[in-house]
Nucleic acid binder design. Structure first.
Length: 271
DNA sequence: ATGGTTGTCATACAA
């Protein structure tokens, strides 16, 4: 059997429920992790997704900003959200799959929305960048203390960092741009090392291949200029690395009607 | 060097 897991920063789940339904219908992932739902739990368009077979939904939403959710065709036994960096932002939710998931029973999926960090890459001058760094430090602590990848596990989401040279359209020109500064990239590396996570996307598309999952809205022609960044990630626990079978980056979704600025990333694990 | 767009909620603010 196989397990397919997708991640997508949707930038308002209410405005783009139709696009989510299109993805679910066309790609049928077992699990879809959403970020930037911008929607309190009691306004979440549950019925739109349940009717497509995604009966099991975990949400951690707030009014106006941030917000994460997991849509699943497979039942999960528990869902939790952890508060990183001591701010009660809704930026994390996890589920653990139940018995009905057969070979995937006990798999834990962590869905993150790491703070973007504002414009100025200096924690002294920019409180948002400081918050982003503290959030990452908290993730490192969590990784070392709890070893979330000691069993079968996935960490995914919009991590708002493009860590490698070929994760951005110009390494040189972005060295001072929040999302690709050496400080953040190093901290993301430490998050990965803290619990022995494997970058599933780079496992299948190693450097120097360029991989992007986000293109700014502030461009006359995003496809023509192609100034993208790889901000969205899927990591697996080390024991699952050998099961990573294939990967799809739904680049087309960037030109769907009224698109998100991020596109879905989907991996398939063989079990 | 600068400004470029989008969503939410009500006028800036976050991304």
């Amino acid at each position: 059997m196989s397990l397919t897991i997708a991640t997508w920063n949707i930038n308002s789940v209410r405005l783009r429920s139709g696009l989510v339904q299109k993805l679910l219908t066309e790609e049928r992932p077992d699990i879809l992790c959403l970020q930037e739902t911008k929607c309190p739990n009691d306004c979440f368009p549950l019925a739109d997704f349940r009717k497509l077979g995604y009966q099991h939904i975990a949400m951690n939403g707030q009014k106006g900003y941030h917000g994460v959710a997991i849509l699943s065709r497979l039942p999960f036994t528990s869902s939790q959200s952890h508060d990183f960096a001591d701010k009660s932002d809704c930026r994390h939710i996890s589920i653990t799959l139940g018995k009905e998931a057969r070979k995937a029973t006990g798999f834990t999926i962590h869905n993150f929305y790491v703070p973007a960090g504002g414009d100025i890459p200096d924690p002294e001058q920019n409180e948002k960048f400081d918050h982003k760094l503290r959030y990452l430090e908290d993730m490192i602590r969590w990784g070392s203390d709890h070893q979330p990848a000691s069993g079968p596990a996935i960490l995914t989401g919009d991590l708002n960092i493009a860590p490698l040279e070929n994760d951005v359209w110009s390494h040189k020109q972005l060295l001072d741009v929040v999302s690709h500064t050496p400080l953040e990239c190093e901290k993301l590396g430490a998050v990965m090392a803290s619990a022995d996570w494997v970058d599933a996307v780079r496992h299948l598309k190693p450097e120097p291949e360029r991989v992007y999952t986000w293109w700014s809205y502030r461009s006359a022609d995003w496809a023509e200029s192609n100034r993208g960044r790889r901000l969205d990630h899927i990591w697996t626990s080390k024991q699952l690395a050998a099961n990573i079978e294939s990967l799809r980056i739904i680049r087309d979704a960037r030109s769907w009607e009224r698109p998100s600025d991020h596109v879905p990333v989907i991996i398939r694990l063989s079990l």
